[in-house]
Design a protein around this nucleic acid. Structure first.
Lengths: 197, 197
DNA sequence: TATAAAAACTAGCAACGCTATATATGATGT
DNA sequence: ACATCATATATAGCGTTGCTAGTTTTTATA
């Protein structure tokens, strides 16, 4: 029995509904996390927010961690886009500085989002066949900063990322005073600009 | 009524017992965390391990988070000592390289300990009157690497710490392939050695 | 309109952090 | 040596969590 046109339209509508609800859940999780922290992102509270019962969430994501992983991947996508934008329309001549500023701005403006992106190593792997493309894309923005595909370039990309991640994380967890923020970024970029000269 | 000698000895013994149990709890928490992860460090399991009921743990630490904070502070103490040792007896001439290697070795050999040290920003503050001395001591080891008390030195210390933290964290969460480990450290140290020349 | 399938809900389990209350232990004064 | 009182420890239970088995409702199809 061939699928009728009507059946197709119905299936499409169901898919749309499903994706819309999925987006709703992710959005609610992000909102609650930024407002009250990830410990308050409970399955019950999410099911309240979207006005569905708990099992619906499990049908979508399998587990609470699955929801966090989806948020994390969305975060990597947005980070990648922000970095690409910063790299392409460069202000003040220095590409690395523009990217660095964009990275730290992203981490500072969505601390809970940034937090979850780096606290789920198991369900969001890297350097692995199962690495989501969003993560590859984000990291590729760092690779673009260091021309040439030598292993030196890869190492520099990794170190630049690591430095920014360290600054972001130590700032988020209140280990760094906000006062020296600008000088920190400037000095960091200087350090990494040296080998290119 | 003056405290008798006997009463003193008794009080001392009680204090010793209390501290011993405190150490037992911390030790058990570390062991379970490294073995099965922090989510398996439950108050019930800890109370089983030390053969006391749950309320005893609350008498010591107030909350589960209090236990984690105690472990974190112990971790900072050990990290500080390891860095000091690496700085004082320098191998192969480069102090920064020795300290960097020691830092990453610490993070790699006790991943759960390292994890908890940086996941409790609220209960273990920094840059604050209530900052535990263990944290100040650990960070002071980085300050020693960059002579002079200019703000430039402070910024370089912060950045060196941040870079190492980033590398440690991205390695721990499987974001960096272990293959380029040595080259990563060497390049990082080179970057930070430049301004001193 | 009857039937099958898909979707959603109700209700409950085990485990968690934490605490009010009760019991046992041990030091003190006569 | 014994009664007293404080301290230390245990029992039992509350509210909440992630998750799921079983049931009911809704929706599409014949």
């Amino acid at each position: 029995m061939a699928t009728t046109p009507a059946a197709n339209r119905i299936a499409e509508r169901k898919l749309r509904d499903k994706q819309a609800r999925r987006a709703q859940i992710i959005s609610a999780a992000r909102r609650i996390a930024e407002l009250d922290g990830w410990s308050n992102v409970t399955v019950r509270r999410l099911s309240d927010e979207i006005s569905y019962s708990q099992p619906v969430l499990y049908a979508h994501f399998g587990s609470r961690e699955g929801i966090l992983a989806a948020v994390a991947i969305q975060g990597f996508q947005e980070l990648g886009l922000a970095l690409e934008k910063a790299r392409k329309r460069v202000k003040r001549g220095n590409t690395a500085e523009s990217v660095a500023a964009a990275y730290l701005e992203f981490a500072a403006s969505s601390p809970a989002l940034y937090e979850v992106m780096f606290s789920l190593s198991l369900s969001v792997p890297f350097d692995d066949p199962a690495t989501p493309p969003e993560l590859r894309f984000a990291f590729s923005q760092f690779l673009e900063l260091f021309p040439g595909q030598s292993s030196k370039a890869e190492v520099l990309s990794e170190l630049f990322w690591a430095s920014l991640h360290g600054v972001a994380e130590l700032t988020r967890t209140k280990r760094f005073p906000p006062s020296r923020r600008k000088e920190r970024v400037r000095t960091l970029v200087e350090l990494f600009s040296f080998p290119k000269r």
